[in-house]
Nucleic acid binder design. Sequence first.
DNA 1: ACCTGAACACCGTTCAAGT
DNA 2: ACCTGAACACCGTTCAAGT
Lengths: 275, 275
Amino acid sequence: MGVLEQPAAAAPAPYRRIAAELRARIASGEIRTGEKVPSVRQIAQEWGITASTAGKVLSVLRAEGLVRAVPGVGTVVAAAPGGAPGARTGPPPGRVNGTRPLTRDRIVRTAVALADARGGAALSMRALAAELRVPTMALYRHVPGKDDLVALMADAVFAEAGLSGSAPAGWRGRLEAVARHQWSLYRRHPWLARTVLPAAAAGLMEWAVSPALRQGLEPGAVPRIAATVASYVRGVAVSLTDGPATPDLDPFFTFGLARLLDGVHTYIEQRPAEP
Amino acid sequence: MGVLEQPAAAAPAPYRRIAAELRARIASGEIRTGEKVPSVRQIAQEWGITASTAGKVLSVLRAEGLVRAVPGVGTVVAAAPGGAPGARTGPPPGRVNGTRPLTRDRIVRTAVALADARGGAALSMRALAAELRVPTMALYRHVPGKDDLVALMADAVFAEAGLSGSAPAGWRGRLEAVARHQWSLYRRHPWLARTVLPAAAAGLMEWAVSPALRQGLEPGAVPRIAATVASYVRGVAVSLTDGPATPDLDPFFTFGLARLLDGVHTYIEQRPAEP
DNA sequence: ACCTGAACACCGTTCAAGT
DNA sequence: ACCTGAACACCGTTCAAGT
């Protein structure tokens, strides 16, 4: 376990944990589109849980559209939605004797999936290599070391999805949208909050404030407002991984965000005279 | 290095780092009240720095009142201010053959000093035992394990100093005082932000909001306001240890805190009708 | 009974030995 | 030249062997 690092992330319910593990196997390419995921019976046996819990696991993944039931066959990995690039069916062109080539991108994606599934503390170079079924030292031909890998993971996650939907025109709507977006990233990837954050995290937040410049906001206030909101979101996110006893922080997050935006509103509206 | 943990805390200037190390030696009891700390010449030699930098180290400690210059003798550890309990001169009564007994309290205090001086990532059971000059396994007779030790460290730090000065009567002054107090704790102990926080951290913040109850605030809002402010402080504190390129966050902290308190002010004043 | 050295099962990473 | 197994210098903690 990491120095000064507590048991990462509250222990989730078994069906959630197992669903996350299967999600990781699918994300890493271990189980590919059209291939069968373990059956209810197999899951129950492998993880030592009851069939009804195992059934819950598959229904979670089905609800996400990640797998689908094929009558007479079993549950298989569904095609990636929207035909996103990188979501291919079957082996890629460059493959050699059945194994896909090891790339930096595949390493990073698998590392993210592993940290999501088993917690940040469970991510080790050895465990990652085992997941990818390559020798540990093979990773070092693609990433300089673990710290850099973690930085790449953070980059990848912040780049993974922009804001969904159209961006509001006003600063308040934008700031709230970006804050909620980052909050959802932290919830999906709890290890992220304790990581060194990429510059991208601050950039999007600053963009959100920019409409207020037309209202006469001093330019120097933009990075401060951005940092304030980003810090708040990250602070709640860090608490998210404080331990198993952590309460549901979603209502807390929403409440605090509203207070914070009210305070920014007061600041922008009164446009203080002093520099 | 810890899993998912980046090089803990920005690399500080050499004179700061060395000052922190000496502070740790004093806090752990290795150098006791009245005993000499290393001279400018010795510091310069031991750490391979110039005499002028070494002089800066001692002037930092002198400015803190931790050491004082005794003409004809050298620089010695000053008596602890205010005669606080635990700050004794000379060996405690229970000592045997020159070594002080190992206690949980001494372990925790030395661990805090070590993490402060060398960064959270440098705290290991082995390093701590070496600092205390005891076998590693001796620690396990006083603390169950490292996770528990870290929790005790957080407890100790949050308990170490209450609010200095008298508490303001109004919620805003109190909330600001507690927020600034916790901010100063994080600055003194950067490893704290990434640690699992003790319940005490939330308690003090809730106490701060309580005067607003007399203004008609719904009781359910108190923990939310407290959590919001605490999360904000912790979020800035986590950024504090993001890396060597971290800018001075103090003005950012002050700016954001003012916005946040403005937002809470708006909330409390309008006392919304909906539940 | 108390204490702790050796051992175990892990880390991240270097480096030289393989192909 | 490319790849990687063995080795090094660490971890936290168990456990049996010492006193």
